[in-house]
Design a binder for these strands. Structure first.
Lengths: 389, 389
DNA sequence: GCCCAATAATTTCCTTCGTCAAGTATTGAT
DNA sequence: ATCAATACTTGACGAAGGAAATTATTGGGC
C-alpha cells in the first residue's frame, strides 16, 4: 500500500520526531523550530507523507494575525502503524497495542506460572497474537514488538545480561522473540523504557535533561542528560536506591547501610511497620491502611521513607540538574502517604536553584510499563530511517 | 604569516580534536578512528596544515609489519598559538601561558588586595602583560584568554551571574576583560574549567562520561555525560557537596544536615578537630599535623570526612556511571589522610558494577586551575572553526 | 470585485561535504 | 628490478541543505 521506507535525510527524522512528540506544526514552524530552511522541511516531509506517516491537518482555524496564505500543519497519522509492548515481570506479562502516537489501544494481562525462557517466550507469542487479533487492522499494520524487563539489558544487541527476578543470565531475547513472533523486536530495561515513554510522550517532552523515579519493591531512576538516556559505563546508572542517606541506618542487602531502598523499598516498609506495631504478619496493604487510619508508628515509617526518597531525588537534582523530575510508583497505591514527605525531603536537600526543579508525583497505571516498551519500538522505527550505520 | 582560519569542514575540527587530545595519528588511522574515508581526512587536514596548526611528524620509526608506504602521522604544532589562563580567587590571581597542547609554559601568582570589578580587571590586564612579555613569541601568537572563577557563570555570554567569594552579581566579565586586554576572552566556572582540562588533556581523554571531584573549602564536582559537560537546567550541577549522607549529622550552612561539605569541607574539618582536641585555636594545618602524628580524635575526623566524600562519589557513580572519576584537592595537602577512607566509602556505597569505576585520587598543583581556564579558550578556538551558527 | 500586502509552500540552482574508485607514493621482500 | 603492501591523493559523483525566485492562498483596502 505504502512505499517502503528508504533511508531518509536527517532533517526528515528530525522533523518527524518534533511532530510526533510536540504535536502538529506547519513547515515554516518546523523550519524555525529546527533551525532549517523551509526548503529542507518541504523536501524532508515529502517521503514521510508518501509513506503515510505524516499528513496535512485538515483545513483548521487560522491562528496568526490574519493575512497571508494559511499554514497546513503536518501531523502524525497515528493509525499508520501499531506497536506491541510487553512488560515482563516475575509473575505476569502486561501487553498493550499502541498507535504511532503511543496511545494505548488495547491492553491484556497474562499470568506467568514459570519463568524459564521457553515458557516466557511462548507466553509472549500468545499474548502478541491475542493483542493483534483484537482488530483486523492491527495484524497487518504491526511490525514491531518492544519488550521491557527489569535488570541488565543491552538495547543494542537485545540481550538480557542478567535479570534477578527471572533468574536469567545472558539470554538473547531479541533473537528468540523475533523467531517466536515474526516481529522486529527491541528489548530494553523497564525503567529506561518508562523514562523513554515519559521523555517522548509525557512530561519530559522537549526537556534536554529529565529524570524519572520509580518507587516500589526497588527504587529506580531513569536519567536523560543532553537529550540522551544515560546508560552508565559499567551498565549501572540511575541507582538512586543505593544512595545512602544515613550512615548509621538500616542495613541494606547491598552491604551498606541507610540506602534509600533499605528505608523506602516495599519490603523495608513492611519490616519497619511490623516492628512498629509488633505484628509480624502485617502486609504492605495493612501498613497502608494503618497509616491512613493515623497509626503514629506506621505513619512515621512512611514519613521516613518519603523523606529518604526526597533526599535521593535531591541528590539527582544537585548532581545533574534535570529540568524536571517525575516520581511514580510501580502501581504505587500509597503515593498519598509518601508525597508530602518526598517534597519535604527534596526541598530540604536540594541546593540553591536546584530546589526550583518541578517535581511531579503521581501513580502510573501498570499498563504504562508496557506502553514504555512500545515506545522504545517506536523510537527504533524512527532510528531505522537514519542512513545505514 | 599564516592564512586566517575560515570555517572548516566538520571532519577537520573532528580530526584536529582527536590529534590534540589523543596524540599523533596517521591519516588512515584518523579515518578509522573517526569512521570517515581517508579522502575526507586528507581534505580536512590540508587547511589545518596550511594554517600551521598541524604538521607531519618527522620521519619516525615505522611500526607495523613492515611492508608498504610508511605513515606520516599528523601532530599538533604546539607553539603555533599560546593561550593565557587566569584563575580568579578571593585573594589571588593565578595566571599561566599554555601552548596549544595545554602545556604550561609560564606561571605567575599575584595577590589580590581588593575584589571590586575594576581592581580585578586591572590586575587581570597586568598579569596578562606580565605573562606575555616573558617571551617575544608569546605576545604575537596569543589571541585568547580564559578566565576561571567560582560561582555561577554563563559560558555562552561570558557573564558572571553570581560569585559568592568576590561578591559579584551579574558582571559582564568577558566584555570587560576583552576591553582591558584586547584578547578574545572566555569565562567559565572554575570546576567546569578544570573538568574540561582533565577531559581534553588529562585522565578523562576519550571518556564518554567522566567526573572530577574537588576537595577543599567546598566539595565540588564537574560532570561529563555523553561527551558533554553537564550544566544543569537551573544552573546547578555537580553539587556533590550538598548530598546528605547522614540525616542526623552536622548542620550545614545550606540548611540541611549531614551534607558531604558539612563533614568534609575544610572549615568543617577544622571545627571538628577543635572539638576533638579542645583546642579552639587549631588551624587546618595543625589538624593535618596531629592526624599524621596519630592523634586518634583528629584522625577520626579525617576518616569520617574521607568516608563521606567516598559516599558522595559513589552517589555519582551509582547515578550516572562515569567511566572514571578523578578526585583532587584545591591545593590539597592532606590527601594522604583522605585517600584510603575515600576509597573505603566509595567501595561500600558503590552499587554492583559501579564499584569497578576507576578512582584516581591525587593532589593537583594550584596552577592546574589556571590551566583549566586556558583549556577552555583552546576549546573555544576549535569551536570557532565550526561553520557560522 | 480587484489589487496588494502578507504569509506559506515549492522549485530551481548552488555549495558543502563526504564517499567511491582509481591513481600515485614509498616502503620491504624476493 | 619487480612485486606486494600500505599510505596518501585526486577527481567524479551524490546527498543534503541553503538562497532566492516563484507560486499559492489568504485578508484588507478601495
Amino acid at each position: 500500500m505504502f512505499p517502503v521506507a528508504d533511508a531518509l535525510a536527517p532533517a526528515a527524522t528530525a522533523l518527524f520526531t518534533v511532530v510526533l512528540t510536540e504535536g502538529p506544526l506547519s513547515r515554516v514552524g518546523l523550519a524555525r523550530r529546527l533551525d532549517l530552511s523551509s526548503a529542507a522541511v518541504t523536501k524532508g516531509a515529502r517521503p514521510l507523507i508518501e509513506m503515510g506517516y505524516l499528513e496535512e491537518l485538515a483545513a483548521t482555524e487560522r491562528s496568526g494575525p490574519g493575512a497571508g496564505r494559511p499554514a497546513s500543519p503536518l501531523t502524525i497519522r497515528a493509525d499508520r502503524e501499531f506497536f506491541v509492548g510487553v512488560k515482563i515481570t516475575r509473575d505476569e506479562l502486561i501487553g498493550v497495542v499502541c498507535d504511532l502516537r503511543a496511545q494505548v489501544r488495547t491492553a491484556v494481562h497474562r499470568r506467568l506460572s514459570e519463568t524459564d525462557v521457553d515458557h516466557v517466550l511462548r507466553q509472549i507469542a500468545e499474548i502478541t497474537t491475542e493483542l493483534l487479533d483484537g482488530s483486523g487492522d492491527y495484524r497487518s499494520r504491526t511490525r514491531r514488538l518492544g519488550l521491557a524487563i527489569s535488570g541488565d539489558v543491552d538495547l543494542a544487541t537485545g540481550r538480557v545480561r542478567y535479570s534477578p527476578f527471572l533468574q536469567w543470565h545472558d539470554v538473547p531475547l531479541r533473537e528468540l522473540a523475533e523467531q517466536a513472533t515474526g516481529l522486529t523486536v527491541t528489548v530494553e530495561n523497564d525503567v529506561k523504557a518508562l523514562t523513554t515513554a515519559e521523555h517522548w510522550f509525557g512530561e519530559g517532552v522537549g526537556a534536554d535533561s529529565f529524570a524519572l523515579v520509580t518507587v516500589g519493591a526497588g527504587i529506580g531512576c531513569g536519567l536523560v542528560v543532553g537529550g540522551r538516556l544515560v546508560s552508565g559505563s559499567f551498565g549501572v546508572a540511575g541507582e538512586i536506591g543505593h544512595i545512602s542517606v544515613d550512615v548509621k541506618g538500616i542495613a541494606c542487602h547491598c552491604g551498606s547501610r541507610g540506602c534509600v531502598e533499605a528505608i523506602a523499598g516495599a519490603d523495608a516498609i513492611v519490616r519497619q511497620a511490623r516492628e512498629a506495631t509488633d505484628r509480624p504478619e502485617l502486609t504492605f496493604d495493612d501498613a497502608v491502611a494503618l497509616a491512613r487510619a493515623g497509626d503514629p508508628g506506621v505513619s512515621a515509617v512512611f514519613a521516613r521513607a518519603g523523606d529518604a526518597i526526597g533526599s535521593g531525588i535531591a541528590a539527582v537534582a544537585n548532581l545533574v540538574g534535570p529540568s524536571r523530575i517525575v516520581v511514580s510508583g510501580e502501581g504505587l497505591s500509597a503515593y498519598d502517604l509518601f508525597e508530602p514527605h518526598i517534597r519535604a525531603g527534596f526541598q530540604r536537600q536540594a541546593f540553591g536553584a536546584a530546589a526550583d526543579c518541578p517535581l511531579s508525583i503521581r501513580p502510573l497505571p501498570f499498563e504504562e510499563w508496557a506502553r514504555g516498551a512500545a515506545t522504545v519500538s517506536i523510537k527504533a522505527l524512527v532510528a531505522s530511517w537514519r542512513r545505514p550505520v
